[in-house]
C-alpha cells in the first residue's frame, strides 16, 4: 500500500511538472538524485562521468515533461533513461579503450577513482583491497548483467521492474541475475 502510494505520488509530481510546476521537479530531483548517481557510478565506475550522465538523465526527464504519461512507474522510466545512457557510454568508452583503466596498474589512470570512492582515509588497507576486488568483479560482468545486479542489489527493484527497464522478460532478468551472481560468487569467493 505504501509503495503504491509512493508510485502514485511520483507520477503525480511528474504530472505537476508537466503542468509547469518547477517545485515538483525539485522534489523528484531531491528524491532520485542520489539513487541515479550511485547507480550510474557503479555502472561506469567514474565519479565525474556518472554525474555528467545523471545531469543528462534529469535534463531528459525535464525535456520530456510535456509528453509524460504515467503508463509505468516513474522509477522504471527514470532508470530506463539512466541505463540507456550508461550502456551507450560504456559502448563508446570501449572503443576508446577506457575500460583498460580498470585493469591497469593502480598507479595509472585509475588512481583518481580509487581515491574518490574511499569513504575515509582511516579505512584499512584490507578493506580497500576487498572493495577494489568487488569493484573489479562487478565491472567484469557483461553490461546487462551488471545493470540487473545493481538494480536488484542496491536499488532493491523488483524483477518485473528490472525487466521493464532492460526491455526483456521477467524470466530473462532472473536468468541474468542468476548468472551474474554465480560469476560474482566464484570471483569473490576468496574474500570469505
Amino acid at each position: 500500500m505504501g509503495v503504491a502510494a509512493a508510485i502514485e505520488y511520483d507520477a503525480e509530481l511528474m504530472l505537476r511538472v508537466k503542468e509547469g510546476d518547477g517545485a515538483s521537479f525539485g522534489i523528484l530531483l531531491e528524491k532520485y538524485r542520489g539513487p541515479v548517481i550511485h547507480f550510474l557510478y557503479r555502472m561506469v565506475q567514474d565519479s565525474g562521468v556518472s554525474e555528467e550522465l545523471a545531469q543528462e538523465v534529469f535534463l531528459r526527464v525535464y525535456r520530456s515533461r510535456s509528453s509524460y504519461e504515467p503508463t509505468a512507474k516513474f522509477t522504471t522510466w527514470l532508470f530506463r533513461i539512466a541505463t540507456h545512457l550508461a550502456l551507450n557510454w560504456l559502448r563508446d568508452a570501449k572503443h576508446e579503450k577506457s575500460q583498460d583503466r580498470l585493469d591497469d596498474d593502480p598507479e595509472g589512470g585509475g588512481t583518481r577513482d580509487v581515491a574518490d570512492r574511499r569513504p575515509s582515509v582511516e579505512q584499512s588497507l584490507l578493506d580497500a583491497v576487498k572493495l577494489e576486488e568487488v569493484r573489479r568483479a562487478v565491472a567484469g560482468l557483461p553490461e546487462k548483467q551488471r545493470a540487473a545486479v545493481l538494480m536488484h542489489k542496491y536499488e532493491e527493484m523488483e524483477y518485473v521492474q528490472i525487466a521493464k527497464v532492460l526491455a526483456c522478460s521477467e524470466s530473462a532478468v532472473k536468468s541474468l541475475l542468476f548468472r551474474a551472481y554465480e560469476t560474482l560468487r566464484v570471483r569473490l569467493a576468496h574474500l570469505g
Binding site: 557510478y41 556518472s50 542489489k153 542496491y154
Partner: peptide, 22 residues
C-alpha cells in the same frame, strides 16, 4: 558472503553543485 561483500561498496557522495549545474 557475496551479499556482504557487495554491501562494502558504499555510495559516492554527490557533488554539492550538482543541482546548480543542472
Amino acid at each position: 558472503l557475496l551479499w556482504d561483500s557487495l554491501d562494502q561498496w558504499d555510495a559516492q557522495p554527490v557533488s554539492p553543485d550538482f543541482d546548480r549545474r543542472l
